[in-house]
Amino acid sequence: MKGLTPIVKKVAQLMSGIICIYGIYIVVHGHLTPGGAFAGGIILAGAFILLILAFGSEVVKLRKEETGSSVTESLSILATLILATAGLLIGSKVFFNDYLPKGTVGELVSAGAVPLYNILIGIEVAAAIITIFLALIIFKEEEEQR
């Protein structure tokens, strides 16, 4: 896949950082404001997809990135499961038990384990969207090479 013009590249470079920060903001404030892990994760993925589209990439490199993102996806789901199963082992022996202190309403560090779940799911969603995007684009690239 070829990259686009230098103007697009520069703008994408500048914008993707801001988009990334916005996505992270949405994810970590999931327990306080509307939005949350899914919306934030999609925004995060958007930043990466913008970069890939603007700069272009070789198929070999795209494959490596796909492997990386799918492993990230699996690892973050496993981490979520471990977090949920930890409630089964400690405290009140209940799956998905919220065993962390709750804190005060409205603060960033509050609501027990919910922000942790939000962050992990955010990473998972971002990685999943990137994996889907890469899988489709690799398929298209291989078609064109033939």
């Binding site: 799918s70 492993v71 699996s74 690892l75 789901i77 496993l78 499961l81 949920a84 199963t85 089964l88 022996k93 209940v94 799956f95």
Partner: peptide, 21 residues
Amino acid sequence: SSLVPLYVILPLASAFLIPVF
């Protein structure tokens, strides 16, 4: 009764352990 969620946890965990390991 704490064994009940294992029916979902274990296959789900194996579904995501397999792509990694």
